[in-house]
């Protein structure tokens, strides 16, 4: 299983993967440092799950989400948003765009377990 992690913070990319490995040790983790790189990697790798920040230089998470859903609206690929933005407008917006789950930062072991359950389809 391929999991794509898109976040402009190197520290956060490392933390996300560190926590997720406990629950999904067999997964192959791919990382992107901004939205544009994330979109290119998504097209190339077609990951089963994508974890993505929203506020990033260049393409925002919302824009990448629109591109992914525009390419394959009915795709089974899971898009999980991991953001510091706690606004209900933001949550509504990305859920409407087709995000599978929205989780607020900071990441923790408990939140990683939730994400792993979503990815595994539990």
């Amino acid at each position: 299983m391929k999991i794509l992690v898109i976040d402009d913070s190197a520290v956060y990319r490392t933390q996300i993967i560190k926590f997720l490995r406990e629950f999904l040790p067999e997964a192959e983790y791919i990382t992107a440092h901004d939205g544009a790189e994330g979109w290119n990697l998504y097209k190339k790798e077609r990951p089963e799950a994508t974890l993505m920040d929203l506020l990033m230089p260049g393409l925002s998470g919302q824009e990448v989400l629109k591109l992914i859903k525009g390419m394959e609206a009915k795709a089974k690929a899971k898009i999980i948003i991991l953001t510091a933005d706690i606004q209900k407008y933001t949550r509504d917006e990305v859920e409407e765009l087709g995000a599978t789950k929205v989780i607020n930062k900071p990441i923790s072991r408990e939140k990683a377990a939730q994400i792993a359950d979503v990815i595994k389809g539990d």
Binding site: S9, Y12, L55, D85, I86, Q87, K88, K105
Partner: peptide, 21 residues
């Protein structure tokens, strides 16, 4: 610096985001 940016991002989003909500 990256970590400090994230700490600020998370804390300030919480305070400002709760204003917005």
């Amino acid at each position: 610096i990256d970590a400090m940016k994230e700490i600020g991002n998370i804390m300030l989003n919480t305070i400002v985001g709760s204003f917005a909500n």
